[in-house]
Simulated assay, not measured.
Amino acid sequence: MPLDRRQFFRLLGVAALLPFSLSLQAQPREVPVEILHIDKPDAGVPNNRLPLLIYHRVIPPQVANNAEYLEQLFKSNGWPPQWRYQAYPFTHFHANTHEVVGVFSGSARLQLGGEHGKVVEVNVGDVLLIPAGVGHKQLSADQDFMLVGAYPPNIAADLCHDEPKKMAGRMKLITAVPLPQTDPVTGHSEGSMLYWHGKN
Rank of each mutant, 00 (worst) to 15 (best):
Y195L: 02
S23T: 14
Q143T: 15
L50W: 04
E99T: 00
I38F: 05
G187F: 06
L194W: 06
E163Y: 08
D142Y: 11
V103E: 06
F145C: 12
A176Q: 15
G149L: 00
A67C: 12
H92K: 04
H136W: 00
S105Y: 03
A87Y: 13
W83P: 00
V31M: 02
E190D: 15
Y55A: 12
D4C: 04
Q111S: 00
G187P: 08
R57D: 08
K199W: 10
G135W: 02
V185T: 11
P164E: 07
L110Y: 06
L110F: 06
P19I: 11
A64F: 03
S21K: 13
P46H: 07
A157P: 11
P61A: 01
Q62M: 11
L50K: 03
A95Q: 07
P19L: 10
L18S: 00
D39E: 13
S140I: 11
A16S: 10
P164T: 10
E190L: 15
N66R: 14
F104M: 08
Q27H: 12
I155Q: 07
A168M: 11
D126H: 02
Q72N: 14
V177Q: 10
Q138N: 14
D144K: 12
N66E: 09
L53C: 09
A156F: 05
H56K: 15
A67L: 09
L147M: 05
G106L: 05
H197M: 04
A64R: 14
G133L: 07
P89H: 01
H188P: 07
P41N: 08
A168R: 15
F74D: 02
P152D: 03
H94E: 03
L17W: 08
L173G: 04
D142E: 12
L11C: 05
G113F: 02
D144Y: 11
A67S: 13
K137W: 09
